[in-house]
Amino acid sequence: MSANNEPNIVAFLCNWCSYAGADLAGTSRVHYPSNVQVIRVMCTGRVNPLYVMNALQQGADGVLVSGCHPGDCHYMEGNYYARRRLGMLKDLMEFVGVDPRRFHMSWVSASEGHKWKEVVEKTVEDAREAGSFEGFRRRQIDW
């Protein structure tokens, strides 16, 4: 959390649906909280579950992964892989004591600018409720 108690959230968005949806939110001038920082990947299938852990370890209070709706993946099945891998990760995180509200997965299509706003709001609200994350020993990589 920053000084003013705002959660810091890292989001991984697929290029084709969710990143485009977030762009559309911009073109439509939909306003939403600024806590979410986006890292663009080509497909949610690219998101190694370790990235999520890594983000939490590096200072994020919450992580969001968002891709195409099931069945709509630009690469046919990447989001199915993501759903499996990250679903398992979510269970594991809960098991090791990480508040599940810190990790969200969502499906936002290229036309869902408004949905993107809702997803951001929900993610931020949940992370805010979960509070600042100090659960992992900080391993700040000097990039």
Partner: peptide, 21 residues
């Protein structure tokens, strides 16, 4: 590893966002 989206290219992005907490 996909070129331009390698672990060693994405992990520093994650780290950079963390530092600026």
């Amino acid at each position: 590893q996909p070129k331009s989206f390698r672990d060693r290219q994405i992990l520093p992005q994650i780290a950079a966002l963390g530092v600026l907490k």
